[in-house]
């Protein structure tokens, strides 16, 4: 059967694909289109059944999409792509590097002699927490996460890196500053923050592990995550994305520990972004599973 490929934005017919059958999938369409246009490798292509519709899933067949001989498919170029893993590694390695660089108190930023000024204990602890967090993320990216979607537009690399690297510099500049003021309530505040941070980091790791084990390697099967033997995963009883709950919790505790407004701003920005993601994920779960637990919220138990 024949399907014509129409450019989604301009409405111009780009080509007509003829080597298709009703059982061909969208992935097949992409492969054939790639043979004709070497520039548009499959990950870079998006096909829709309406000019402004959603991207069609790779495993959907033309028959299931009700596309018949002579119908149109709308094509959109997603732009050059880059692997998720590459982006993750770049965006997490940066904060580690930037933070530790400022931790050494370079003379070009803090002035000569800053390196020799005494540091409060909380400054060491903060550097340890920060490093722990990003080391953990790098290791998780390498060994724990399974990426269901292979690539993202290359612009995301620059966007994400400027966010993470920029905030790392902003927070590190103040926490490591020779004129840094330690928390008002002294050691109690520091240790409360530290313990909270570590618990939340552990919780975040537990959730990542649970999500990994939920989906066997190579499968695209989706399931509802439930608490496992690990007590931290009990958070699944309250929210759809406990990994974000713990992540926000960790940064809130870091802020408490350092008593630093830039850290609070980083927490808020992260919370906003994660709340948006959590809402999307929550909605997908509810749409996909009719038996999805009703008491679950998105990111904050009982609230949001």
């Amino acid at each position: 059967m024949e399907v014509s490929v129409v450019h989604a934005r301009s409405g111009k017919t780009l080509t007509t694909l003829s080597a298709l059958s009703p059982s061909s999938t969208v992935a097949d369409v992409k492969r054939i289109y790639h043979q004709r246009n070497a520039k548009y490798y499959p990950d870079r292509q998006s096909f829709r059944s309406e000019p402004k519709g959603r991207s069609l899933k790779d495993d959907a067949t033309l028959q299931s999409l009700n596309i018949k001989n002579g119908d149109k498919l709308y094509f959109k170029d997603l732009g050059p792509q880059i692997g998720w893993k590459t982006v993750f590694l770049a965006e997490y390695a940066g904060p580690l590097f930037v933070y530790l660089l400022l931790y050494t108190r370079p003379a070009c930023i803090y002035g000569a002699g800053a390196v020799d000024k005494p540091r409060q204990q909380v400054v060491y602890l903060a550097a340890a927490c920060w490093s722990l967090h990003y080391m953990k993320r790098l290791l998780e990216t390498q060994f724990v996460h399974r990426f269901s979607h292979g690539t993202m537009p290359i612009m995301n690399l620059f966007k994400n890196c400027s966010y993470y690297w920029g905030f790392a510099g902003f927070v590190a500049y103040y926490v490591n500053h020779p004129l840094y003021t330690s928390p008002a309530f002294g050691d109690i505040q520091v240790y409360a923050g530290l313990i909270g941070f570590l618990l939340n980091e552990y919780g975040n790791f537990s959730i990542h592990l649970t999500l990994r084990n939920l989906r066997p390697e190579g499968s695209k099967e989706r399931k509802i995550p439930y608490p496992t033997g690990d007590p931290m995963t009990l958070m699944f009883n309250f929210v759809s994305c406990p990994n974000y709950t713990y992540e926000v919790g960790a940064w809130a505790c870091f802020t408490l520990m350092t008593q630093c407004v830039p850290a609070a701003l980083f927490t808020l920005a992260g919370f906003y972004q994660m709340a948006v993601w959590a809402k999307g994920k929550h909605r997908n779960y509810k749409r996909e599973f009719s038996n999805y637990p009703r008491q679950r919220k998105c990111i904050i138990p009982f609230v949001l």
Binding site: Y174, V175, H177, L179, Y180, T181, A184, T258, Q259, C260, V261, P262
Partner: peptide, 9 residues
């Protein structure tokens, strides 16, 4: 200006 309790300038 630094130093202050909020650690921001």
């Amino acid at each position: 200006t630094l130093p202050n309790d909020y650690n921001i300038s």
